[in-house]
Design a protein around this nucleic acid. Structure first.
Lengths: 342, 342
DNA sequence: ATTAGCACTCTAAGTGTTCGAGTGCTAATC
DNA sequence: GATTAGCACTCGAACACTTAGAGTGCTAAT
């Protein structure tokens, strides 16, 4: 459906004003926009937009507020997304560059930035590590009975795990573990480091194998974490500050994020590029009264993970998309650079 | 001020009912308690308790609600704290024992347990590491330009840091760093590992010292984190579910926790044992309409850190104290055990 | 000291009324 | 044919008013 330019302009004005102030918008307040027509004309247009289903009146003597269809039309056909301010860009760059040591940090920081700048809940998924392999393992003794395992994957992720044994650990023992595990695991897919593997591995050492379960648990644990998707959530407390978001929706958003299976599935199945789900368009029933805006980031041109913000349907779509896209772009660059450098 | 037993019983009944249902409590509903007196008698007692300032009426035809003084009297003189249910104890034990690898994990988990069981925000401070010393440092190469530093303190804390250099790292180089840093630092107070030290240290290596700044930054960073107090906060989202807590207080609690200098100062200056701050008794103005309940935990009988929950003044003090004390006790035992084992 | 009884107070909830914001429609105008 | 001024209309917010009921304090009797 295509709509006359002036009508689009009016629709955009209603939506942008409504997003800004949260009150229904009447014909008179729209005369401030540079439309140069009388309020009666505007009313005619508003009536038409209402008939088309883009606006509704809460009651006869109120102004209009956008419907979800209205937001959808706005987002698809009217909204012009601009690149963020130079100042904002610099801020995003500096925040993200200050944690150039690890991809996880970058993603976590990206989530924080988004939630700060957009005053919403934000989420960032790590790239799926299912195809990654073990690159290297290393043990560091941290106490008489405790050690730290450091796992480095082929994709450059670093995971560490502390573990404790029932017996006093000796450097020699750790060396044996280190050598044999690296031999056995280097190049193996993370997903293949599972219970059966651990048993076979321990068994092949006879007596010595009895000393291994704690350590092998740590290894499996680290591999399984590195092979899955992790979600960093930021700004949940922003829900207390949002307007246009009722308590129930706020709780639903929290439950969506708290249920990692649901949010993981949803966020990792989001299409490439930028995507907006408005209210009932959301796959998850928990978000049916909220909006989710997502952007994918890439590593070396390959689709990798998702950044997303969630808020009321009355969220500032233009600003959100602009900042989200720029952040995703920057994240892509920085992580790609890390991977390239190795 | 001492109060007749029956009056105490009535005060307790009002408070406990009010905490449970959030509605003002009238004389009739108190007849269900086993007082065996008429509502008129209860009214006389209520009038007296109101005159003493322990109760107020929101309006003439309403029941009574407790004042902060009322809560204070209840907490000091009436409330009998019992040890938690066996089931709850077992749950706390199992959760805390499942992370027996690191003190930090135990504290983080303790916070989570508290916020889950009490449906409030919880905080846990790490022991101040100001007197701790460097025990050992270890480097693990994670990429061509990146490495991980693992710092182990004399108090058994383990901190890791990733860092990146401009030049390709060689195992030999890491070995040199490792050896010379361990030599220079082992036994040194964490707080003495600062900028001046780093400069002197790097200078003593001449040319080679130019390669060190990134690594030394990581070392200083890790030491300064380990020497300070960290606060683990859990359950901030519970604020959305609490009743008796208005939006402003909820935000204030968040701000209190967000301002680490304030919360750090407050939480680490809390007296030994269990402590309850009700409303205006709170040192921080941000908590003047909330209650904070804290319990200290010990390491090897030495005061170490604080566990705390924060909620509306209408929080279930009895349950909170009971669970908080048991958790603090268990944390003390587990961490002491870790330290003893080394 | 306790209690039954009662007058009293005050809120929550419902009703009626007014005010005004915003509308849709119509007839006049460009 | 599009635009606009004008006007009647609608409906909610705000306020006043009423009523019902919960809870009280007081008094006189036990």
């Amino acid at each position: 459906m295509t709509i006359a330019p002036r009508k689009q302009k009016i629709l955009a004005a209603v939506i942008e004003n409504y997003i800004a102030c949260g009150e229904p918008i009447g014909s008179k307040s729209l005369m401030n926009e540079d439309l140069n027509v009388s309020s009666a004309t505007i009313r005619n247009e508003l009536a038409d937009l209402t008939a088309k289903g883009f606006l509704v009146q809460p009651h006869t003597s109120a102004g209009r507020i956008p419907t979800e269809d209205g937001y959808r039309y706005y987002v698809d056909n009217i909204m012009e997304v601009k690149s963020p301010d130079e100042r904002v860009k610099r801020y995003i760059q500096s925040r993200l560059r200050s944690c150039d040591d690890a991809p996880e940090r970058i993603l976590e920081t990206a989530g924080k930035i988004l939630s700060e700048l957009l005053m919403t809940v934000a989420a960032a998924t790590t790239p799926p590590g299912e195809n990654a392999r073990v690159h290297k393992l290393k043990f560091v003794q941290t106490g008489r009975y405790t050690s730290m395992l450091v796992l480095i994957t082929s994709s450059g992720m670093v995971k560490s795990r502390l573990f404790r044994c029932d017996y006093a650990i000796t450097p020699e023992m750790l060396n044996v573990f280190d050598r044999s595990l690296n031999e056995a695991l280097a190049g193996r897919p993370l997903t293949s480091v599972n219970q059966p593997f651990a048993q076979t591995f321990a068994a092949s050492f006879g007596e010595l194998g009895l000393l291994m379960p704690d350590m092998l648990n740590a290894v499996m644990d680290a591999c399984s974490e590195a092979s899955g998707i992790n979600i960093y959530t930021s700004g949940t407390t922003k829900l207390l500050y949002q307007n246009g978001l009722d308590l129930i929706s706020a709780r639903n958003i929290l439950e969506f994020l708290g249920d990692s299976s649901e949010s993981e599935k949803m966020l990792s199945n989001v299409p490439d590029g930028t995507n907006i789900y408005i209210g009932r368009e959301n796959p998850s029933p928990l978000l049916r009264h909220s909006s989710l805006i997502s952007a994918r980031y890439n590593i070396e041109k390959q689709p990798a993970g998702t950044l997303a913000v969630i808020g009321s349907t009355q969220i500032d779509y233009k600003k959100a998309v602009s900042i989200l896209e720029y952040t995703a772009e920057t994240v892509s660059e920085l992580i790609s650079e890390l991977v390239r450098k190795g």
